[in-house]
Nucleic acid binder design. Structure first.
Lengths: 206, 206, 206, 206
DNA sequence: CATGAATGAGGTTTCATTCAT
DNA sequence: TATGAATGAAACCTCATTCAT
């Protein structure tokens, strides 16, 4: 039997272990969500234990996605927090940050590409709504800071962020094959380029 | 027993019936693909009969998606074929055409949002590759015409189209709830706005 | 693969095979319902095939119970249909018929003893209501004939049948151990005796 | 942490709390046994604590049933202890006492209706045998007093009690729906009537 | 061509119970 | 005594697809 995690800290560790293991199995796998049983086994835990830490299998992968998108938000925040340099420099820094985060979190886009049809059915209705609301809240605060840093009209930053994320998502899903290695085509370069185009147009503003 | 379809024409009719029924059931449904049995029943056919017309359940929905994206391409072609007016006017016409098509084919985006995780496992590997290749070919021809019409450097049109589609896809999937009616938020207006921003940026050139 | 049962007759045979097998496994077993998988295997059928013939696992055992109670009703009908002899002789014949049926359908009481808690959760809500209603209808017709044969006031026969069945049921469940072989105690003799007592009292009538 | 129960008295209180809570949850519930976790939570205790007071979940509900049947026995004893009045008057009093007890302990019959399939699998084999033996012993002493009071041949009283209980049990389980409110049908009146019939027949003797 | 009976893999979640703290 | 984290067995049913008729 795995050691019991009584301390707060130990419990958090265990939770993180489950998340990391789930991410790893998903990336190693064939594009489908690993079963709860496999995750548990890979963690050296019993199946039931996983359900102490997450109410639902879907909740595991939702948490993983939330972490990923939070990372994107942080990439934006890191630039708007200091807000130094020209507008163009800041934009470049933001885009670079986004691309960089994506490069380091390959599971994010693959999870995302699974789409509504896979994770949602694995979540309770309430959980799902809460999850989506949480995403929005998180984003809004960050978008306000973006408005300030770039001196945008209120609300513009939120739209730009949403659309940037949409572009990222959509580009991944448009990829001829889900793993980009077989074409002379670097996804991260493409994304950065597309984002530059979009931001330029959005800021040229009308 | 349903009447046997011997004539070429009858077979095509039956095929279209299956497609239309599948689309209808999907739109009426809860966001999951209707089962092969339901589609067959709604067509007043036996399960086996459906498999005479489509090799796979996934093939039905892939065909539906192909139809949808073909429509988007046509919206572009309608403008580039005549190629009259200023560049800005043409861009505006293209975007309007895209938005219009989306408005009339609500199943397209909903299918798309199901993501890789739902339709792909329902298709044989070869089928999938062929499908994606077909999409690309279709797009390339259209993109060449776009290059000409807007006097773009070769390849630019393809990128712009791919990224436009990516933006459309991603925005739909970012929607807080898959049906947008509950927010003071019109998806098609948003998409058109985002496309305008993107195209402005992309054409502003580097 | 098992031969396909296309003919009506073959389908009925297969249905009966499943029922008989389920009854046998239940009697051989430890008092719990055999799993759907075991029933299928014992029939040399695939799991899914069982679900073609019964919507639910519970439905199999409900059908078994219905068959059993139908047999009890038939035991009553066999006597009331001819209605010859004195009232006492008819009562004796009815009771003997009931006891005899029970002796030949040991699964009936064991199924019954499982109680509401086991079969009901294995049935859909509508199925359950339909099943209970069917039982009642079946009984009522038979009870009317009993009223006639014994010249009872209307409704008296139904009460007597219901209470006789209740007594049978209850006695089985009161058995010290669910299998009666280990005591010098013959369940069927006891039941017959108790039924005689009850019918005597009921007919002595007030 | 709940206060520790060291004193004998405190322990009994806690045991009773668990029993009462279990009965309440069962009655409020959907007809299935509440889980050990729910019982514990409703008592403001930890799951493990419940297992200090009861070896098994089944033991809780067995104890509840034992309490219930003990009450029925007491209803009989209250009459036989004084043994005054005519035989008919005593029988009427006994039956009234039984019906009255049932009315005040609705959980008894609902538990009983769960049948062998639900509580027994929740008890260890030895526990179960001991439980049943205990029931028998309890009943025997009471039956002897009944023999005396009504001047019955030895053993007759036991049979009559067993069969009365069987009738009660069986009638409850025959109820079209487990809650009798939806028919113009009063369970307790019916039971009393049936018991009268049975006792009349049994005493009419052969 | 049409039918529909047969197949069988596949995975989530619950919950009674134990035992280290 | 009290706690609550860990265990792990257990079984339902769906549904895409095939193939004998």
């Amino acid at each position: 039997m795995a050691k019991k995690a009584f301390a707060r800290e130990d419990k958090d560790d265990r939770r993180r272990l489950i998340l990391a293991t789930a991410a790893r199995l998903f990336l190693e796998g064939d594009g489908t969500l690993p079963s709860a049983a496999r995750i548990a086994a890979a963690c050296d835990l019993a199946k039931g234990t996983v359900y102490i830490y997450f109410t639902t299998k879907g909740a595991i992968f939702a948490a993983l996605q939330a972490d990923g998108w939070r990372g994107l938000r942080d990439a934006v925040d890191r630039v708007t927090a200091t807000a130094t340099g020209t507008r163009d420099a800041m934009v470049a820094a933001i885009i670079a940050g986004l691309a960089d985060h994506l490069r380091h979190h390959p599971e994010l886009l693959r999870l995302d590409a699974l789409g509504h049809g896979v994770i949602e059915p694995n979540m309770a209705a309430g959980e799902l709504a809460a999850f989506k609301a949480g995403q929005m809240t998180m984003l809004t605060a960050s978008a306000d800071r973006l408005d300030q840093a770039l001196a945008l009209p209120p609300g513009k930053g939120l739209k730009m962020l949403l659309r940037s994320y949409a572009l990222i998502r959509g580009m991944w899903q448009s990829l001829p094959s889900s793993d980009a290695t077989d074409t002379g085509f670097d996804f991260h370069v493409e994304v950065a380029e597309a984002l530059h185009e979009y931001w330029r147009g959005a800021l040229a503003g009308r």
